[in-house]
């Protein structure tokens, strides 16, 4: 798909970007596990990238949600908080470009979610170093955090894939392209 983004695509991306920021604030689970917000965040990124099948859709969602997060809840990281969102979105695009596929496969969606949430963690670590946080504090709990980011990112990808599947089954013209190859009906 080439050319400029349509108004419908831009609206969908803006809406999903807002949901990412709102979801991160509203669906804070009291489970004290790092990276758990990825289950909502990555699901929305996967849905957004699946609905708007453009090579830069993930990066755009990351950028817009980063700007929104910066405006709504900048925290101590200030402007750098936007970098985390941008990294997660860009990771989705970069990985999909690498595997040359679309999010029609459940396995691809799970791996994309895991990669994207891990990219967010790696960016957070790099920002921590940039902000002068001692290595010892960054190292504390890093192994567990990596595992949970991968797991929750993967779960988010799975959730996103299921949502895409349901959207495809609605039969609405804008979602027809979401069908898995085996399910696609010849015109």
């Amino acid at each position: 798909m080439k050319g400029r983004l349509t108004t419908r695509e831009l609206t969908a991306l803006a809406l999903i970007s807002s949901l990412i920021v709102l979801g991160k604030s509203l669906f804070r689970l009291p489970i004290h596990v790092p990276g758990h917000s990825g289950i909502f965040w990555m699901a929305l990124l996967v849905v957004g990238r699946g609905v708007v099948r453009r090579p830069t859709a993930g990066t755009l969602m990351g950028f817009v949600s980063g700007v929104l997060a910066l405006a709504l809840a900048p925290g101590r990281e200030g402007a750098l908080v936007a970098v985390k969102y941008l990294a997660a979105g860009a990771a989705v695009d970069a990985y999909l470009a690498l595997i040359g596929g679309r999010l029609t496969s459940v396995v691809a969606a799970v791996v994309v979610g895991a990669v994207s949430n891990t990219a967010k963690l790696v960016t957070s670590l790099l920002l921590g170093f940039a902000l002068g946080v001692p290595g010892g504090y960054i190292a504390v709990g890093l192994g567990l955090a990596t595992i949970t980011h991968i797991a929750f990112g993967g779960l988010g990808g799975l959730l996103g894939s299921l949502v895409l599947d349901r959207l495809a089954k609605t039969g609405l013209p804008q979602f027809v392209g979401l069908r898995r190859p085996a399910e696609a009906v010849e015109p």
Partner: peptide
Amino acid sequence: LATTGAVLAVLAAAAFGFE
């Protein structure tokens, strides 16, 4: 996809190792 899964597993092991 399989390679990525393996890379993520190695990354997690490296994080534990670094810690």
